[in-house]
């Protein structure tokens, strides 16, 4: 709508709103070149993960404080968790991270679109498997009366402290599950974009950012497993 033509159109604000992706040849307005754009976005993802780490960090702090207050109750609470299911889920997530890494490798080495999409699909499916197993665990807790508010049947001395453990268990695994769900959705979008041929060997920034996020969610779980499942063992 600018009536003046003092400056070339591509230097004006219109480019602000153009949907861009790594596949486009030209970088966004604020970048000199694609390398700068790529480095900036990946750096932004790292800063975002620092924020996420502080979010989980607050939960880890609460856990540490209450575990120091009530070590016996936390050990007792931990015995109510199913280590087999937790262990399987750990393996599932580690393999899913491998799939993500292989997907990025496929993008980098200009493998076929279908190959890239398959690795991503494997990661997404494994993420869903994790969620299903986690949901089953929640269901078992509900059945056994280990879910505060909804069905809590533990009584006796120290039951309140055990309930604190379960509050933290549900808070930490719940926030983790929310993050994993977002990760699965992101990978789903990446599958579509991979099939559309959005990614090139030198242009796969969104894929790399998704991968960073996925690995982060995975690593959080690696810390949750011993803190929650292995206290008493």
């Amino acid at each position: 709508m600018a009536e003046s033509s003092l400056r070339p159109m591509n230097a004006l604000g219109d480019t602000h709103s153009v949907e861009t992706s790594g596949a486009h040849a030209a970088p966004d307005l604020q970048f000199e070149n694609l390398e700068q754009q790529h480095a900036t976005r990946v750096f932004g993802m790292w800063i975002f993960l620092v924020t996420e780490l502080m979010l989980f960090g607050a939960l880890f702090l609460m856990y540490t404080v209450y575990r120091a207050f009530y070590p016996a109750a936390f050990a007792e609470g931990s015995r109510h968790l199913d280590l087999a299911l937790g262990g399987i889920n750990t393996a599932v997530l580690i393999v899913s991270s491998l799939c993500i890494a292989l997907a990025i490798h496929a993008a980098r080495t200009s493998a076929k679109r279908s190959q890239l999409a398959l690795w991503l699909l494997a990661a997404a499916v494994l993420g869903i498997v994790f969620m299903v197993i986690k949901g089953y665990e929640y269901f078992l807790h509900y059945q056994n009366g280990e879910m505060p508010v909804f069905n809590w049947t533990l009584t006796g001395a120290g039951a309140g402290h055990v309930q604190l453990f379960f509050w933290l268990y549900f808070a930490m695994t719940g926030v983790h599950a929310i993050h994993l769900s977002i990760g699965i959705a992101l990978v789903g979008i990446m599958i579509l974009r991979a099939l559309l041929g959005n990614f090139k060997p030198n242009a796969y920034t969104p894929l790399e950012m998704t991968g960073l996020y996925w690995h982060f969610v995975d690593i959080i779980w690696i810390f949750l497993l011993p803190l929650l499942y292995l206290i008493a063992r």
Partner: peptide, 29 residues
């Protein structure tokens, strides 16, 4: 900011269910 964010979520949860992580009745602090 994320530390405040998660803390306020837990307060809201505790308020909704009348029991929770800062509840002295459970030994919360």
């Amino acid at each position: 900011t994320p530390v405040l964010a998660i803390t306020l979520v837990l307060v809201a949860v505790e308020r909704l269910f009348h029991v929770g992580i800062f509840d002295p009745a459970l030994g919360g602090d």
